[in-house]
Simulated scan of single mutants.
Amino acid sequence: MRIGMAFGDVRGPSPLPGIAQQIQEAAAAGVPAAWLSDGVGWDALTALAAVGPRLAAGGIELGTGVVPFAQRHPLILARQALTTQAAVGGRLTLGIGAGISRMVGSMYGLPTDRPARRLREYLEVLRPLLRGEPVDHRGEYYTASSALALPADSGSTVAAPSVLVAALGPAMLAVAGELADGTITWMTGPRTLTNHVVPSITRASGGRAPRVVAGFAVCLTSAEDAVRERFAEQFALAGQVPEYRAMLDREGVAGPADVLLAGDERSLTNQLARLAGTGATDLMLAPVGTAAEQDLTTAFLATIGG
C-alpha cells in the first residue's frame, strides 16, 4: 500500500509558496504521491501546474483530491487537466467529485440531484476529451461538441491522466468502477473500506483492479485524547454532511474524531497496518494539528515510505 500525503485546504489555509515548499520537501523525502485538495481556497490544478516544474523529473505523483466537477463543464475541466498534465511532465492523477451537495447548492446555485447519473454522463464526455478524441454529445445534463486542439509536437507530455472519483455510496461506486480508474475516499473508516468501498468498486470494475485511495487526517502525538477532542470541534460540521455522515454511520462511529489517525509512533504504525488490510491500494494522509504537530507527523510519515 502506497502512502501519499495531502496538502492544501484540508490542512488549513496556507500561502501557495508554503504548499509548494511542502510538496518539494515531500518529494525530496521520497513520498510517492502528493494530493492537493480543492475546496474554497487555491485551485488545485492551477497550483499543481505551478509546483510541477520545480520538481525533479519523474518521481512524485501529483494528484487532485478532489476537484469538484459540478461547476466545471467537462470541456473546461479537460483543458485544465491536460494543461496541468503538460506542466507537471505527465505525473498528474485527476481526482474529481460531485462536491458536497450543500456547498454546490448554496454557493453556486447548481442542482445536486441524481449525482450518480450526472457523474456517468460527465465521465462519458470527459474521458474521450482527455484522450484527445472529439466528442459530439447531447445528453440529459451536458452538451459538448468539440475536440481539444493541443499540439502533438510541443515537447510537452499530454497523455491522458488517470481519473479517480470521490465515491462513497453504492451508485457512485458503481459508476466509478465502470468508467473511472478508481476512487478516493475521505474519513471512511477501515470497516467501511473493507466491507463496502473495496468490494463495491471491485465488482463494478469488470475484472480490472481499481485503485482505492483512502484519505485520512493524521496526527503524531503523545496527547491523543486532547488531539481528538480538538479535531472533533474543528471538524464538527463535516460530521453533519450527509455524504460523510452516511459513511460514519456505516463505520458505527459518532463523528470524524473517531476515524482520525492519532497517537504515538507505535499506535500510528498499528493503525496504518490495519488500513493495509482493507484492500485499499493507497493512503492519502493529511497531517493536522498545530504547526509543530504537523511537522512531527510529516517527518514520521516520510520515514515509513509507501
Results as ranks from 00 to 15, higher is better:
T298D: 07
P170W: 01
I76R: 01
V135I: 03
A238Y: 12
R102G: 13
Q85S: 04
V163A: 00
R230S: 15
A286E: 05
H73F: 01
S14V: 12
F69R: 04
A174F: 02
S37E: 03
P242S: 09
G182M: 00
V175P: 00
I19L: 14
R203D: 15
R91G: 05
R2L: 15
A209Y: 04
V241A: 12
R211P: 02
L148I: 11
A167S: 07
R2I: 15
L16Q: 03
H73V: 00
I304N: 09
L220P: 01
A152L: 15
S101R: 08
R266P: 14
R91N: 09
S14A: 15
T298L: 09
V135G: 00
A232N: 05
D295W: 04
I96F: 03
P190N: 02
E178P: 06
A20I: 11
R91H: 08
M187D: 12
R203P: 08
A47G: 04
A29Q: 03
G90Q: 06
A176F: 02
G30Y: 03
R54E: 15
L261S: 09
A152C: 10
I304Y: 10
V88K: 02
S101C: 11
R208A: 12
A152F: 12
L301Y: 03
G206R: 07
A262E: 08
L148C: 11
V66P: 01
A167L: 10
V253E: 08
E133V: 12
A280L: 04
G63E: 09
G30W: 04
D9F: 10
A209T: 13
A27L: 11
A171P: 04
V241T: 12
L16G: 09
L119F: 00
G255P: 04
M187G: 07
V213P: 00
Q271N: 09
M107K: 10
E251I: 15
A33F: 13
W42H: 15
I60H: 00
S154L: 12
V288S: 02
G63T: 09
V104K: 01
M247S: 15
L130K: 01
A98N: 07
L272N: 08
L179C: 08
D225H: 12
G90A: 09
M172F: 06
Q85V: 08
G132V: 06
A291W: 02
G30H: 04
L45A: 07
D282I: 06
C219E: 08
L164F: 03
Q234I: 12
A152K: 09
P170N: 02
A254V: 12
G177W: 01
M284C: 12
L92I: 14
